[in-house]
Design a protein around this nucleic acid. Structure first.
Length: 506
RNA sequence: UCCUCCAUAGCUCAGUUGGUUAGAGCGGUUGACUGUUAAUCAAUAGGUCCCUGGUUCGAGUCCAGGUGGGGGAGCCA
């Protein structure tokens, strides 16, 4: 048995493929079966004269997603997806699929989410899962090649410690416990034992977020390094993003460009040095008081709005034009359908464009009126990243809006050494990190200031009692990184079985 | 928790100021066609118009409440 991705090694030879019918077209005496086997897609041509009536009729009767075994000659054919075609000499059904619910057309989100277990078979989801796998692999490779040790933090924790987030609570043998929102504090303990570590596991957030960048269960990578200050932390962050993105482009070029139609030039900007700006600079830029590459945020947004409005107007013209062709009548059925579909597509596109156009004035208003000292909202991140074409790092944040464990900037307790990495094109925050506070007195004070119970942090404070050292780390949101790399509109497509507000099934 | 939009065939949608027997495409089935790329062409089956109540001679359409869902705010990766 041979897998589709290996076909290039078998050109001119006869192979046996096993897989599922992803599509079939038929003509008199000919079947064109697009077979998928998980490793790829391949058109297999069944000729009545070649295989005989029995085999031909058996394969012809199969519908979408039936499983089968096909044997045939591998032939190079540049017109085909994957570049090869199999000319079938024999084949048989393994199991028929009847009334497969997902059709070869556009579906609504709700329907597809209910059918997620089947949706994963479609080409777009196949590409996304392959990219997810490549991202996971390259993250491990990056850390392993640098001597980091992978260690797992517990998923069950005794307290809702860090304060802000809402956590899922469970009954742990009669005691309250929570699903972990972060492995970071444990990561610090492990770094004090192993030097440089990283965790790679699921985390849980119980916020009732219904947006395209939130999941209730997602995977996070949290490196933690002893003897790293925040500059070294930012260097590592930047190297990691650059290397992972570059390798994934290399490995998944077909998935990105052919299936997802991702504009790779938008990703290739990771080769540049990532701009590093302080929170204070970011505020000036956001409010339009400081230009980037000769343009202020206000100018860029106004240009964007004008471009959007022009696009919408152009689409409307096209819709009207096509509609008048339809109304005029006398067109062949195929052409008519094509026109109708095009009109529907343009209408959907305009709905989305209009939504974005409606948002821009609000973003502008929110950016102009931003109060220095507050945290950035989703739209603020979008505005900020819109000005840069590579990822941006924002560091030195106001103390009150950040977690208790972040180290104060030397000589200025109003700021802490936190850093967020924002992805371009509006994808927003994909990494958050900081240098950690090492001074036990400062930590004790912060724990009080944040109204946190000191007893549950005694073990954490021990890390400062016994050989405290400067250390830093960050948390990378796996699905957010994949969403950006793949150019996907919604984060839910980047994880096999998404858990989000209002959904635990399938 | 708040704001906003949506619910019509298996799926994606249209349905005029409220009017008689609710439509199209895709998908399914049957047939035609020996190189198709969302193939094409012909025929055919397929409906509790989300639920409850109201207005009206008459409701898919208007009103109220509910349910489910999309997008966003807050929070964050």
């Amino acid at each position: 048995m041979v897998y589709i991705e290996q076909l290039q090694q078998f050109e001119g030879q006869t192979v046996t493929l096993k897989g599922w019918q992803a599509n079939m077209r038929e003509s008199k005496g000919l079947l064109f079966i697009v077979l998928r086997d998980g490793s790829g897609f391949c058109q297999c041509v069944v000729n009545l004269e070649e295989v005989g009536e029995d085999v031909f009729n058996e394969l012809k009767a199969l519908s979408l997603e039936s499983s089968m075994e096909l044997t045939g000659l591998v032939k190079k054919d540049d017109r085909q997806i994957g570049g090869y075609e199999v000319q079938v000499t024999n084949g048989k059904a393994i199991s028929a699929s009847i009334d497969y619910p997902i059709a070869k057309k556009e579906h609504g989100v709700d329907f597809l989410m209910d059918k997620r277990h089947l949706w994963l078979r479609s080409r777009r989801q196949w590409a996304l899962m392959r990219i997810r796998n490549a991202v996971t692999f390259e993250i491990h490779a990056f850390f392993q090649n640098r001597g980091f040790m992978q260690m797992d933090a517990p998923l069950l924790t005794p307290n809702a410690a860090e304060g802000t987030s809402t956590l899922f609570d469970i009954d742990f043998y009669g005691r309250p416990a929570y699903l972990s929102q972060s492995g970071q504090l444990y990561g610090e303990a492990m770094a004090m034992a192993m030097g440089r570590i990283y965790t790679f596991g699921p985390t849980f957030r119980a916020e009732k977020s219904k947006t395209r960048r939130h999941l209730s269960e997602f995977w996070m990578i949290e490196p933690e390094m002893a003897f790293f200050d925040n500059d070294m932390n930012m260097d590592l962050m930047e190297d990691m993003i650059r290397e992972v993105v570059t390798k994934v482009i290399e490995k998944c070029r077909f998935e990105l460009t052919e299936v997802l139609e991702r504009d790779l030039t938008k990703l290739e900007t990771v080769a540049q040095k990532f701009p590093r700006i302080t929170y204070t600079e970011a505020v000036h830029i956001l409010k339009g008081n400081q230009a980037v590459n000769g343009k202020t945020s206000i100018e860029v947004l106004q240009d964007d709005l004008a471009a959007l409005q022009k696009q919408i107007a152009d689409n409307e013209t096209e819709i009207a034009d096509k509609q008048s062709q339809v109304d005029a009548g006398g067109i062949k059925k195929g052409k008519l359908n094509w026109l109708k579909n095009k009109i529907d597509q343009l209408k959907v596109e305009n709905k989305e464009l209009q939504e974005r156009a409606d948002n821009i004035p609000q973003w502008l208003e929110s950016a102009k009126n931003f109060t220095e000292g507050e945290d950035f909202g989703g739209s603020d991140e979008t505005v900020l990243t819109r000005l840069f074409d590579s990822p941006v790092m924002v560091y030195n944040w106001p103390t009150p809006i950040k977690a208790f464990y972040m180290k104060e900037v030397e000589g200025d307790p109003n700021f802490v050494k936190g850093v967020d990495l924002l992805a371009p094109e509006g994808y927003g925050e994909i990494v958050g990190g900081s240098e950690r506070e090492t001074d036990i007195e400062v930590l004790l004070q912060k724990i009080k200031a944040h109204n946190l119970p000191q007893e549950v942090f005694e073990w954490y404070l021990d890390l400062r009692r016994y050989g405290s050292v400067p250390h830093s780390g960050f948390g990378l949101g796996l699905e957010r990184l994949i969403t950006w790399i793949s150019g996907t509109r919604h984060i839910r497509e980047t994880i096999p079985f998404p858990r989000l507000y209002g959904r635990v099934e399938p």
